[in-house]
């Protein structure tokens, strides 16, 4: 191979190593970014909705307790607002299904909430249920806890998924770093080898040729240089050798 080809090949190889490593690192980092967005947009949203639904349930429970104390107006007002908020949050959650198993969870919440709502929708004030804490704890509170547990399961599911995605993101970030590290180390090693070869096969022969030419001029020593490679340097050495032989012959005939 010609000298130009050899030197060019060295740089091309270096560029290939760095380009692939760089490209791959960028790809993995991009994925890390997308993963983080996913965590924020999807899973965190669902966890937030679960929190709000839990708050709505707590307010409903407070409303029911007010009804138990005979305060109909305040109780029904709180219940109405909390119910409306809960349904709104539940609808948001239904439109934000991103995790396997989330739909089943939400259906569960919906079913258990219907059963809970059925209980407090019916009149409580001025009935035998008013002040009847046995009924409250045995029926109402049990249904309340069922819904609350179902909502908690939704939060737990998204929590777990968020953790898994975060772990995968961590692994992706390691994968983004590692090609970079290996590319840097490989490039350093490659550069050392490249410089060694250039020194041995290009610089040294040129230095040898130069010193032999000097010796021919100054001390009339025959020009003999060994060039291992079959490239422009060998052609140069052979041309100079012919020139020196011609010059010697010319001087001798004089």
């Amino acid at each position: 191979m010609k000298l130009k080809g050899k030197i060019l090949s060295g740089f091309i190889i270096l560029v290939i190593m760095l380009t692939i490593a760089g490209g791959w690192s960028i790809y993995e980092l991009d994925n890390v970014g997308l993963t983080i967005n996913k965590i924020l947009d999807e899973n965190y949203k669902s966890i937030n909705l679960s929190k709000r639904m839990t708050e709505d349930l707590e307010r409903q429970d407070s409303g029911i307790l007010l009804l138990m104390l005979g305060r109909w107006k305040e109780g029904r007002e709180i219940l109405s607002k909390a119910d409306s908020s809960f349904n709104s949050n539940l609808n948001f959650a239904f439109n934000n299904i991103t995790v396997p198993g989330e739909k089943v969870n939400l259906d569960n919440i919906s079913a258990s909430y219907s059963a809970y709502r059925n209980l407090w929708e019916k009149p409580i004030v001025d009935t035998d249920k008013e002040g009847n804490f046995d009924w409250y704890f045995n029926r109402m509170h049990k249904e309340f806890m069922k819904v609350k547990y179902a909502v908690q399961q939704l939060a737990d599911l998204n929590d777990k998924t968020m953790y898994e995605i975060a772990s995968a993101a961590e692994q992706r970030s390691n994968r983004a770093i590692m090609p970079g590290i290996i590319a840097v180390l490989s490039s350093i090693l490659f550069t050392v080898i490249f410089v060694y070869f250039v020194n041995y096969y290009v610089v040294n022969p040129i230095v040898n040729i130069t010193s032999r030419v000097k010796m021919f001029i100054e001390k009339n020593r025959p020009f003999t240089v060994e060039i291992e490679t079959k490239d422009e340097l060998l052609e140069l050495a052979e041309s100079i050798k012919k020139l020196c032989e011609y010059e010697s012959a010319r001087v001798n005939t004089k």
Partner: peptide
């Protein structure tokens, strides 16, 4: 896929290079 592909390329490049230079 990518780990193996990159490893293959690095190894092959380190393998080819001395063959280009050393007769």
């Amino acid at each position: 896929a990518m780990p193996l592909l990159y490893s293959t390329l690095i190894t092959a490049l380190f393998g080819i290079f001395p063959l280009i230079y050393v007769p």
